[in-house]
Simulated assay, not measured.
Amino acid sequence: MAARIDHLVTSGTFALDGGEWDVDNNVWIVGDDHEAIVIDAAHDAAAIEAALGGRTLRAIVCTHAHNDHIDAAPDLARATGAPILLHPDDLPLWLRTHPEHTPDGTLTDGQELTVAGIVLTVLHTPGHAPGAVCLYAPELGAVFTGDTLFQGGPGATGRSFSSFPTIIDSIRDRLLTLPGDTEVRTGHGDPTTIGAEAPHLDEWIKRGH
């Protein structure tokens, strides 16, 4: 059975630096009829488990550790036995949400995760958060960007642990070098493509200064 991408939207609250915002998050499930990984276990572990439909969950991959991307991860891990994977540079953010439950494993730049016969390569893309990562799956023609790149520009960098020059470097060097027809599966909102976003880099830089 060929690997595919399943999509779930969950809703909850993003909280940082004393503020709270209602958000809708994209949860991505990559796999086949037998096994899968979850990218960003947001808000509703029961809904994510239901979307898995009994498939073996190989890993819960966190693109970064803002609470809205990880709040359901421990409950999903307990329900499925799957390990939670996070880049270690985001551990301080993780511990703000889950001080009692540390991740089970780390993500490193260039690491390869295999599920349903396809490989997802970890790209460390700091800026929105120090340990932000994207996952590139060339066999699916997709990159899962978390909050690093959206339709219309970079993720937000106006809060703690973030840096606008760093996210621009990450996008320029790690993402815009991918094939133009690569579909960008984002942490919030609609998908886009690398080719649609690449021409606007200079605009983002001017806007960000």
Rank of each mutant, 00 (worst) to 15 (best):
V9M: 12
V9L: 12
G12R: 00
E20T: 14
V27W: 10
G31S: 02
G31V: 01
I39L: 13
D40P: 02
A42F: 02
D44W: 00
A45T: 03
A45D: 06
A47N: 08
E49Y: 08
T56K: 14
R58A: 14
H64V: 05
A65E: 12
D75M: 06
A79I: 10
A79M: 14
A82Y: 03
L86P: 10
D89S: 09
D89A: 15
L91C: 02
W94G: 02
H98Y: 00
H98K: 02
P99S: 03
G105C: 03
T106G: 01
L107G: 11
D109F: 00
E112K: 14
T114D: 12
T121A: 01
L123R: 15
H124V: 12
P126T: 09
C134Y: 04
L140G: 12
L140I: 13
G141V: 12
G141R: 13
V143P: 09
V143F: 09
F144V: 01
F150M: 05
T157N: 04
T157V: 14
G158I: 08
S162C: 13
S162Q: 15
P165G: 07
T166E: 15
I168R: 02
D173T: 12
R174D: 05
D181P: 06
R185L: 15
H188E: 14
D190W: 07
P191G: 06
P199D: 04
D202F: 00
H209I: 11
